[in-house]
Computed example of a mutant assay.
Amino acid sequence: MTARPLDHRVRSRIVAEARGNPLALLELPREVDAPEPGWEAREGRSALAARIERGFARRFELLPGDTRRLALIAAAEPSGDAALVWRAAAEAEIAADAIGPAQEAGLLELGAQVRFRHPLARSAVYRDATAQERRAAHLALAEAVVDEADADDRAWHRAEAAVGLDEEVAAELEASAGRARARGGWSAACSFLTRSMELTPDPALRARRALDAADARMQAGAADAARAMLAAASAGPLGEPDQARAQLLGARLSFASTRGGRPPRCC
């Protein structure tokens, strides 16, 4: 329901962009009430997801500060572990009753699992926060990890909370990448190694970790990303063994890019 009747142009736009999506039909009217002069020409055909996400962001902006902080912590924790979110909230000195306004608005629930109204509500909270607010949320989550079995989660949250270069966190991420590779999780290893490289202060170690990240991306089937990491590794000081690895990886990437194509002409 809207506070007043919708202009027919807005109503038509909502129906057209919703495309039969029930959630969109519920959320778009909250985001657009009435047209402004030049509305049709200025808006164009914006992405439906972006429109709905913007609407969720505006609804979260109306909530109290601690409620928004709690929602950001929940949005920053991808596993949906409500117990971890509550411990992080306590680390951030957020009272348990801060969840009330978000629940009453139908935007977020913290029961056995974290439940946002929609994935776009989660992304709206995270995107709308400042970099400093996101770092604070990740730091609270990192400090709330109590089980060593969740060491990889702690490493990732510490990395997201880091400002500048940090060898201690980079080493934790490298260890997490090793565990990910051992279980065949090449995509996770890529993420850990790339962030580890970004946080590494020593140029030689940074180059070696970039080479590891390139290899992991090759194993994950991300050839273009592997080439970018290989270029970063080659720009740094590599020892002879790593130079040989880099050359081998470059040859493998070159072979993968030409395999299946026509053979080169000899004359």
Rank of each mutant, 00 (worst) to 15 (best):
L107S: 12
G164W: 08
E93L: 01
E104W: 07
P264V: 04
L165M: 12
G250F: 10
V145L: 09
A96M: 10
E104D: 13
G38R: 13
E91N: 10
E17H: 12
A233T: 02
P35F: 00
S46K: 13
V146S: 13
E167K: 05
D7S: 13
A233P: 03
E91D: 02
R259F: 08
W39F: 04
L205C: 01
A105G: 06
A231Y: 00
E109T: 14
A182T: 12
G261H: 10
L173A: 04
L62G: 10
A246T: 01
E143P: 11
L248P: 03
E109Q: 15
E36S: 10
E104P: 04
G106I: 09
S12M: 09
E31V: 08
P29K: 05
A189S: 05
E40L: 06
L211Q: 02
P237R: 08
A140Q: 03
S257C: 02
R87P: 11
P64K: 07
R259I: 11
A222N: 02
A151H: 14
A175P: 08
L70K: 00
G239C: 06
A204R: 14
L25A: 10
A232I: 05
V125S: 10
L62H: 13
A16V: 06
A90I: 02
P201Q: 11
R19F: 14
F116M: 13
Q132K: 07
S196W: 04
R195Q: 04
A124C: 03
A244N: 12
A149I: 05
E109I: 07
R183V: 14
R265A: 05
R13I: 03
P201Y: 12
L63C: 03
A251T: 07
G184D: 03
G261S: 07
T194H: 15
A3K: 02
L84S: 11
G44S: 09
